[in-house]
Design a protein around this nucleic acid. Sequence first.
DNA 1: CCTGTATTGATACTGAGTATCATCAAGGGG
DNA 2: CCCCTTGATGATACTCAGTATCAATACAGG
Lengths: 145, 145
Amino acid sequence: MDATDSPIDAALGRAGYRATGARRAVVDLITRRDGHFTAADLVDDAQSRGLRIGRATIFRTLDVLTELRAVERLDLPTGDHAYVACEPAHHHHVICSRCGRSSDADDAGLRAVVRDIERQTGYRIDEHRLELFGLCPDCLARGST
Amino acid sequence: MDATDSPIDAALGRAGYRATGARRAVVDLITRRDGHFTAADLVDDAQSRGLRIGRATIFRTLDVLTELRAVERLDLPTGDHAYVACEPAHHHHVICSRCGRSSDADDAGLRAVVRDIERQTGYRIDEHRLELFGLCPDCLARGST
DNA sequence: CCTGTATTGATACTGAGTATCATCAAGGGG
DNA sequence: CCCCTTGATGATACTCAGTATCAATACAGG
């Protein structure tokens, strides 16, 4: 098995980006993470693993991965920008406000809501973002205080 | 008519805040605005009108108004934090990506979507945010290039 | 009108994200 | 398999949003 054959490398190539060591390293850091994380988290991870990756590169790589839809940016209620790894298809995130983990949900029925709002307001809606916050099953089981 | 009797003053009092000159001035700046605006926009507005309001006070007042739900914070796709004036009831914003104006829409049917996602994922959802981006009727009429 | 206290604004600070630029390495062509 | 072009990297410096601090001020209740 050759690292060169990862699906990320393919996606990078398809989009005209080079599959570099730094990018693979960032992807690796992300896959070792659970739940959402900030750019600063990755910078810390890299440092504590002794990886010599520049701060700027981490931000740049997150932008690229966002464009490839391998990652999505969240806007937490606190105002922080965080990211989650995800599948490259349209969907929404359900975020646990206790542990930070997140799951994907498909937008069953949301399309109808959007159409209804277009009728209500007269806007033509091109893009939407739905973010849901609550407690995941594990944290619920562990008591909701 | 006495400025002291504005609904904002009442809302401030109800929440235990004082109705100060600086806060009234910020509210005034906001009502003169159309569409969404950033904290920096208000800082500029204040300066260009010769108002002596500190930067910090503008940020603080926006926090207070957000808490009173006289204003809501948006997270634009660009990553910027913006605000819109709004009615103090739960609703969602439809934002024009050309001119920045926004309208309110009620969440007809969204409740059902949320319940469905709870069933799908096992999460208990406490809070949600739906933001819609597109073109407003005026910008549509003016051609969609 | 007086007073306790919330609020203000000037200043300095923090921290996220970006611009710059010399150096480096990916990978396609020979 | 090596070269060369060009995109990518990382160190640094910078910008700008948002926050902490704190002495001075102004609101509101008595």
